[in-house]
């Protein structure tokens, strides 16, 4: 269900950390194009630049050089506030380490992006409850992250990322901390979000089993795209 419209484009994206002799090239000229409705898995060895790319995609970081355009807009030309607004209205981010707010209930964690969108309290609650139900956490609304298992926390993080029905869901190792059964549940969930809600999904994973759920797999190596293949898996 590729609608064909270009969502994301990287042209010669470089990212250099540090300066001078101590500098380190995390990305060395990445070219990439992702269309709306795609489900992409990004793989590659540790340190190959996956998270760096993801942070740039999520407008959290800026490339040292090269072009990043989102929905045809040159993100490099946006200021801090405009990038924040882009995150607010188009992107959902699942962080590598969950990054939920402690001592704050699951429901309130999920409501957070809606607060910044200015959604009214009642609607906010309703949408957050729906999102939690979608990730299978009905009944766990009032639990704080400390009272939830790793898998449940990961699902709260996903609920928070999808509650706004973003154009794209960016997930950095969403199954990194989970056992296989839990991981499969999450993958099924992402698959549903992609096929039913039409949310573009870009996900980093180390596990080929999980990458198999995606329709396209991109391999990174040493800060460059090594391979970029459509998955044979039909659905």
């Amino acid at each position: 269900m590729n609608t064909g419209r270009r969502l994301i484009e990287f042209k010669g994206v470089r990212k250099v950390y540090g300066k001078g002799t101590a500098s380190m090239q995390a990305l060395r000229g990445v070219d990439l194009a992702i269309d709306e409705g795609e489900f992409v898995a990004i793989m590659g060895p540790s340190g190959s630049g996956k998270s760096t790319s993801m942070n740039i995609l999520g407008c959290l970081d800026t490339p040292t050089s090269g072009l990043y355009s989102f929905k045809g807009v040159d993100v490099g030309k946006l200021d801090r506030t405009q990038r924040a607004l882009l995150r607010r209205y188009y992107q959902g981010f699942v962080f590598q380490g969950f990054n939920l707010l402690n001592r704050t209930s699951a429901l309130e964690n999920v409501e957070l992006p809606l607060i910044y969108r200015g959604t009214q309290a009642r609607q906010r609650r309703e949408q957050a409850l729906n999102a939690l139900e979608t990730v299978g956490l009905k009944g766990w609304e009032s639990h704080t992250p400390g009272e939830l298992s790793g898998g449940q926390q990961q699902r709260v993080a996903i609920a928070r990322a999808i509650v706004t029905k973003p154009a794209v869901l960016l997930a950095d190792e969403p199954t990194g901390n989970l056992d296989t059964a839990r991981s499969r549940e999450i993958m099924e969930l992402l698959n549903t979000l992609n096929s039913t809600d039409g949310i573009t999904i870009i996900m980093i994973t180390h596990e080929p089993d999980m990458a198999a759920y995606a329709k396209r797999v991109i391999h990174f190596r040493d800060g460059l795209v090594e391979t970029d293949k459509q998955n044979g898996r039909a659905d």
């Binding site: 999520g58 506030t81 924040a84 995150r87 990054n99 939920l100 910044y116």
Partner: peptide, 16 residues
Amino acid sequence: IREIGVRLAIGALEYD
């Protein structure tokens, strides 16, 4: 700081 990072990352503006 982490909480602030999360808020900024999910759409809070400097002003918020």
